[in-house]
Nucleic acid binder design. Structure first.
Length: 570
RNA sequence: CGGGACGUAGCGCAGUUUGGUAGCGCGCAGCGUUCGGGACGCUGAGGUCGCGGGUUCAAAUCCCGCCGUCCCGACCA
């Protein structure tokens, strides 16, 4: 490809709307252009890199035995209503009506399409397992599109779905994908980590996220300082403390006057006790019933975890009216004296403490010396706490540290979450009809583009790993008015093509500085420079973008030297 | 949707406070000089000042409404 004809105008300055490094650089280097908030056109350079990511994904999917299909983007609403996701997704789903008034949606993922598809084709356990995948554009009407390709409203995703006859089969299919994903992200040159995750809207049980490590990420995870445990911040489950058998002596329950102290911090200041010695009691409505959720004062309640305890009954935090109507005092709630109708749910960590300070259920009053069983009842011991840095690792008790990352892949063991409501069944060996046991597996292709840009760049621009670069190398003639320079560059460009190196020839009538700056910005792994000086000395200059390392080669060996350098590139 | 900010030429910005009919840099076109890290000179093209309404002799500037965009929060690849 010749730069003089390539549809790519680089920008010296980043548009003001771009904040994230990947967003700025992908705009400046002419990989993408914005059409609307969260919606982008992919330019030739961007599309080349995107295709390389796709190819890696397809190769690993195919090698894992998955088969590619292609499903529609415009989908009828009915199956989505059957699985409850029409409502669960809500406004996040792009919804439209056809001319007959039928409700349709743009696909944010495709379980509702692929599940009936398989059910219609395969009806025997003999047909299973099967894993299908596609690479297709996905649509989510995000509340806040952000950071260019990192959170768009339209994004390219590889989504795969496995169908098995039982849980063991599902776990085996899952394990195959689990490994394939690692190979994919390795090949994309990403620094990533696999973490246990929260299933979110997709549903299901065991699931993992593949996190590309970068400070620019929106996602946080906790990892153990001393073992392999790592989990999404929302999903992390701190070690369950053992119940106290003999602890400090139980103090008597005493009332303390705490004027104007509805917040934990204020009570801590007033009593001189740390927040970790307080109990926080959050009140929720779960389908009309009151749930009191109790966690130590220095932690937050993880509402996702609470919601899961009551699923499918919706759970919501008390509003101002609920407090008065149900006889509670906002800011002074405590677990003691709860009526039998209230479900008292305590986090496991509450077991480990004694002599708590907590609300007295009266304005301006708390109690000290509150103890489980003696002073308050706990109906359910559950994991409801939002884990925090410093909590103990559930595997080996090591301290948990906070990491920041971009989620580039997410895999789920779905079980029968979709096959049951969609009545997607097969006949098992014993003649009985059973729902498929499914898994689903997503990779954000367009997001990888941005994640790699986020991880691989410097002040001058992008530094693509060789596997993803839009071109392998740039051939840069520095003096277009010198026929000897131009013909040498043309010769090396042709020789590179013969060696299978996909290069660009920067044949623009621009100064050398402009060409160098653009080559650095776009991020070709190797630059091959031919100038007047080099022609006279019989040499070509080479630069490895990843390290900035420069070298020289005899002009006649320039192409081979560039190829060798490329093969050594990261 | 809640909180904050912005919208002036392809991009980055000034001008708005204090109304007088639009400017700078980059980029773009032409000519000349340059030519190994975003060259220089001269000339030139390019703007319904986001949109609609109002106030005024006069609005980019003041007022009202709408739209768009970005940043901080709750969702996800």
């Amino acid at each position: 490809m010749r730069m003089s004809t390539l549809f790519a105008r680089t920008l010296r300055e980043a548009p003001a709307e771009a904040e994230a490094a990947s967003h700025q650089l992908l705009l400046r280097a002419a990989f993408i252009r914005k059409v609307a908030s969260g919606i982008y056109t992919t330019l030739p350079l961007g599309l080349r890199t995107m295709r390389k990511i796709e190819r890696i994904v397809r190769e690993e999917m195919d090698a894992s035995g998955a088969q590619e299909i292609r499903m529609p983007i415009v989908l009828p609403a009915e199956p989505w209503k059957a699985t409850g996701r029409w409502q669960a997704y809500g406004e996040l789903m792009f919804k439209l009506k056809d001319r007959h008034g039928r409700e349709m949606g743009l696909g944010p993922t495709q379980e509702e399409v692929v599940t009936p598809l398989v059910a219609g084709e395969f009806s025997s356990y003999r047909d299973l397992p099967v894993t299908l995948y596609q690479v297709e554009w996905k649509y989510r009407d995000e509340f806040r599109p952000r950071f260019g390709l990192l959170r768009g409203r339209e994004f390219l995703m590889k989504d795969a779905y496995s169908f098995d006859r039982n849980e063991d089969g599902m776990r085996a299919s899952y394990a195959v994908m689990f490994e394939a994903y690692k190979r994919i992200f390795d090949r994309c040159g990403l620094d990533f980590r696999v973490v246990e995750a929260d299933p979110g809207q997709i549903g299901g049980g065991v699931n993992h996220e593949y996190m590309a490590i970068t400070d620019a990420g929106e996602d946080h995870f906790l990892y153990c300082e001393s073992c392999d445990y790592a989990a999404d911040l929302e999903a992390a489950t701190p070690m369950r403390p053992l119940a106290l058998t003999e602890g400090p002596e139980l103090e008597p329950l005493t009332d303390i006057h705490t004027p104007n102290a509805p917040a934990i911090a204020a009570v801590a200041a007033l009593t001189g006790k740390p927040e970790s010695r307080m109990l926080k009691t959050m009140l929720y409505d779960a389908g009309g019933r009151t749930a009191a959720v109790v966690v130590p004062g220095d932690h937050e309640v993880n509402e996702e975890k609470v919601a899961r305890l009551f699923f499918p009954t919706p759970v919501r935090l008390f509003d101002e009216e609920d407090f008065g109507k149900r006889g509670f005092v906002k800011g002074y709630a405590g677990p003691q004296g709860m009526s039998p109708e209230v479900v008292v749910i305590a986090d496991h960590s509450v077991r480990a403490g004694s002599n708590w300070v907590t609300g007295a259920n009266a304005v301006d009053h708390h109690v000290a010396g509150a103890n489980v069983d003696r002073d308050f009842r706990v109906d359910r011991w559950e994991d409801v706490v939002q884990a925090a840095p410093g909590d103990l690792c559930p595997v080996d008790g090591g301290a948990l540290q906070l990491g920041t990352a971009i989620v580039v892949g997410h895999i789920y063991q779905l079980g029968t979450r979709y096959s049951k409501p969609l009545e997607a069944t097969f006949i098992d060996e014993d003649g009985s009809q059973k729902p498929y046991v499914m898994g689903c597996y997503g990779i954000g292709i367009s997001r990888i583009l941005a994640a790699v840009a986020e991880q691989c760049h410097d002040d001058s621009g992008l530094k693509w790993p060789r596997s993803l670069a839009p071109f392998d190398a740039a051939v840069i003639p520095t003096n277009m008015d010198q026929p000897a320079v131009v013909s040498a560059a043309e010769g090396l460009y042709a020789a590179l093509a013969d060696l299978g190196v996909d290069a660009v020839l920067d044949d623009r009538e621009a100064t050398a500085g402009v060409k160098f700056a653009d080559a650095d910005l776009i991020g070709y792994p190797v630059q091959l420079v031919i100038g007047k000086r080099g022609i006279e000395a019989g040499t070509a200059d080479l630069k490895l973008r990843a390290t900035g390392e420069r070298s020289q080669a005899p002009l006649a060996d320039g192409a081979q030297a560039a190829k060798t350098l490329l093969e050594a590139a990261p």
